[in-house]
Design a protein around this nucleic acid. Structure first.
Length: 735
DNA sequence: CGGCGTGCCCTTTTT
DNA sequence: GGGCACGCCG
């Protein structure tokens, strides 16, 4: 039977009926790209008689993968849908590596190290090298190593591209870090991709088997692909090149993670004969929203020409509100939100509060709590990052992979059982000397009694607990087993003894963790502890989003990609925050920020608010900043401007006034006694002209701090921008 | 060994 | 504002 795809528009149909060979679908925000991929898969199976087993669909998040599974399942039935490999890049690589880990010198039960594990290992390297971690930041080192891996450079190859002092240091750490990962039978996130590609390169027969298996490949969010991911996909796709990629260059926002927008821009060169389809009709948003978003993104030079349009009604013109400070901003958001919820049919779950940095969530969260608004935060401190959860997971990791010394060190004295830092150091030395695992060394020391009596007893106690658990591990279901770990480790008892609200919450979280294991058992084909840990390691916070709960959603704009909400607030529209200070030097970075702004704006279906504060507390000090340049890129008739604060909008060329905004002379009049008891008055207004003895007249651009520490950034016509300590600079006001 | 106070520096975004 | 490393004391 020939299916007619009558619920697709023309351009979507064209894209769906593409048969074989490479295809690039340039899909604008809200143009129905998930739908196109889903129908494409359906068509492959129904009409081209492709076996579901031969289809691969790769996404960036588990959530996107799950959504695709559900939709395909709805069309062809869950049974057949299960045969399709739909998953993230990391999941795909993991499944390859699990089968062939031994070929790269790993054991199948290898642990996947998360951020904090990775940092711990880097610190060990620094310790070995006797380098000060205050001078060589572990975080920075890791991001360099991560970048190297994403470009598929091993330590040797990395040495060849070293440029500068810091990279030289990284080049010394990188091989040590890799050696340690190996000792611990562990891989980090980037290794999953790196080793996946490595394996396929080194073993043509394995590559061949995947080429045979995956005849048709679909890739979602192709604009965010990095070098490793590109190599992986093109290796498997070759030589048939039945590669169907969907993406939007305007939504490429992961450059900092190695994503290379050029991959999508040069797709046609990479895969000659590629068909290109454009989806330009947006179904999601009103005309007003699309217009404003287009007005912003139009300012990017690095684009593939594409003009998004909406056939929906004009709708409400987006609003910009300039608040006095971050608390006022949060109050505005919450009050407005309440007003809008008074409209018929509105629910809390219709609303998203978006921001650039996770730190911004706190003020918004406080405001929600104050006004009894139910909310969920996506990102920030994740469930699996909580101390108690990580502690329990560390037990599980060690039990599955006894070589995992990072986890062992974490849990060996949790709860406190008298195995202190000194003892652990001695154990490490002994383990190193004999080339055995930490756990084995602990066992040995407990038996031999070479340590002080107290320590020996503690070690004996500990190793007995672990042995007992190891004996049970494969005999009972993971859920039962995790409960057993909680009891035998003494973790629950320890929490129960401490009768505080905090420990009660911790106990709750641990119960929740047990629930998640039981949950996993239910749908896993063959539930194992190892399988559970793999799943947790690849879990992203965005995955937990579900719309069943009627809550307002708080998250970063990065996390919001792919989602939609009737009402969207984008907060923190300020120079220095959005675009972020760290991304203002390079034009390409500003362009990525602008794309992020575009992503944020196009999440809105009906109503869009942009808000910013004239004064914001960062690290506990007040900062005065001008409104985001992105606001100034929206033509005046496309945005309604309101606010309490100084009505100044920044442009690349300087500052200009917003029409219609309420003007105020000085910031010290702006204090709202209700919320800003301890608020700090600003001695200058942004845009105000001041005089400096040496530099002459200039305009105030921004201010940081207060009192003695107040620093004022002034733009002087002849001397450029200067940051001056107000105490020293003796700036005079000029009328 | 472990608890607790002090001071520092920081996060921009995440699979 | 807050997490984390370090140092002091019981």
């Amino acid at each position: 039977m020939k299916r007619s795809y009558h619920d697709l528009n023309d351009e979507q149909q064209q894209a769906v009926i593409h048969n074989a060979g490479p295809a690039l679908i340039l899909a604008g925000a809200g143009s129905g790209k998930t739908r196109v991929i889903t129908y494409r898969i359906l068509r492959l199976i129904d009409e081209l008689k492709v076996s579901p087993f031969r289809i691969l669909a790769v996404t960036f998040t588990n959530k996107a993968a799950q959504a695709m599974k559900d939709r395909v399942g709805g069309l062809i039935g869950p049974q057949r849908a299960r045969e399709i490999f739909i998953g993230t890049f990391h999941r795909l690589c993991l499944s390859i590596l699990k089968l062939h880990a031994d070929k790269l010198g790993y054991q199948p039960g290898f642990t996947i190290y998360d951020d904090s594990d990775q940092k711990a290992l880097i610190k060990e390297c620094l310790w070995d090298l006797k380098w000060d971690e205050k001078q060589v930041h572990p975080y920075a080192v890791h991001s360099y190593i991560s970048a190297a891996k994403n470009e598929l450079k091993n330590p040797k190859e990395y040495e060849e591209v070293v440029a500068g002092a810091f990279m030289e240091r990284v080049a010394q750490i990188y091989p040590r870090y890799q050696a340690k990962l190996r000792e611990n039978n562990a891989m980090d996130f980037d290794d999953l991709l790196f080793n996946g590609v490595l394996l396929l390169k080194q073993y043509p027969d394995i590559l061949e088997s995947y080429r045979k298996r995956f005849e048709y490949i679909q890739v979602d969010e192709y604009q965010d692909i990095n070098m490793a991911q590109y190599q992986l996909i093109s290796a498997i796709a070759h030589p048939l090149n039945n590669l169907y990629v969907v993406g939007d260059p305007d939504q490429s926002i992961y450059g900092w993670r190695g994503a290379d927008i050029r991959n999508i821009l040069r797709f046609e060169q990479d895969f000659p004969g590629a068909k290109v389809f454009k989806l330009e009709q947006n179904y999601r948003s009103t005309k007003s929203v699309i217009q404003a978003a287009q007005a912003v993104i139009r300012n990017n030079s690095q684009r593939k020409e594409k003009e998004l349009f909406s056939l929906r009604e004009m709708g409400e013109t987006p609003t910009y509100y300039q608040a006095e400070d971050d608390k006022d901003e949060a109050e505005f958001v919450v009050k407005t939100l309440y007003e809008r919820l008074g409209e018929p049919g509105r629910k809390f779950s219709h609303v998203a509060l978006l921001y650039r940095t996770n730190a911004q969530s706190r003020v918004l969260e406080d405001a929600c709590r104050r006004h009894n608004i139910p909310y969920v935060i996506v990102g920030g401190l994740k469930f699996y990052d909580r101390k108690e959860v990580k502690d329990l997971l560390a037990y599980l990791h060690v039990l599955v992979n006894p070589k995992d010394s990072v986890s062992l060190r974490r849990m060996i004295n949790v709860p406190i059982r008298g195995i202190g830092g000194g003892t652990v150091t001695k154990l490490e030395e002994s383990a190193k000397k004999q080339d055995i695992t930490l756990l084995e060394a602990a066992h040995q020391a407990a038996q031999s009694g070479e340590f002080p009596k107290k320590a020996t007893q503690a070690l004996l106690n500990f190793t007995q607990i672990m042995e007992g658990l190891i004996a049970e591990k494969d005999l009972i279901l993971p859920g039962e087993f995790v409960k057993m770990v909680l009891e035998r480790s003494g973790y629950l008892t320890d929490l129960a003894n401490d009768d505080t609200l905090e420990s009660k919450m911790r106990a709750e979280n641990l119960k929740e963790l047990v629930n998640s294991v039981v949950d996993y058992e239910k749908y896993a084909e063959k539930p194992t502890l190892e399988g559970y840990l793999d799943q947790v390691s690849l879990f992203a916070d965005a995955d937990k989003l579900d719309d069943k709960r009627n809550c307002v959603t708080l998250m970063t704009m990065h996390n919001a990609k792919g989602l939609e909400f009737p009402i969207v607030f984008i907060t923190g529209m300020e120079e220095g925050l959005f675009p972020h200070n760290n991304s203002m030097e390079e034009d390409s970075e500003v362009q990525e920020e602008r794309r992020l702004c575009y992503v944020g704006m196009t999440r809105a279906m009906d109503i869009l608010y942009l808000t910013g504060a004239a004064c914001r507390y960062v690290y506990g000090t007040p900062q005065w900043r001008a409104p985001s340049r992105f606001l100034s890129e929206i033509p005046k008739d496309m945005i309604q401007v309101t606010g309490k604060a100084a009505s100044i909008v920044a442009t690349q060329g300087g500052l200009y006034e917003v029409e219609g905004a309420k003007k105020k002379k000085a910031f010290d009049e702006l204090k709202d006694p209700e919320w800003d008891e301890e608020g700090v008055a600003a001695p200058f207004a942004l845009g105000e002209t001041v005089k400096h003895k040496k530099f002459g007249k200039g305009m105030v651009i921004s201010m940081i701090g207060s009192g003695e520490d107040l620093k004022v950034t002034v733009s002087f016509p002849n001397h450029g921008k200067k940051q001056l300590l107000a105490k020293m600079a003796h700036l005079e006001k000029v009328e």
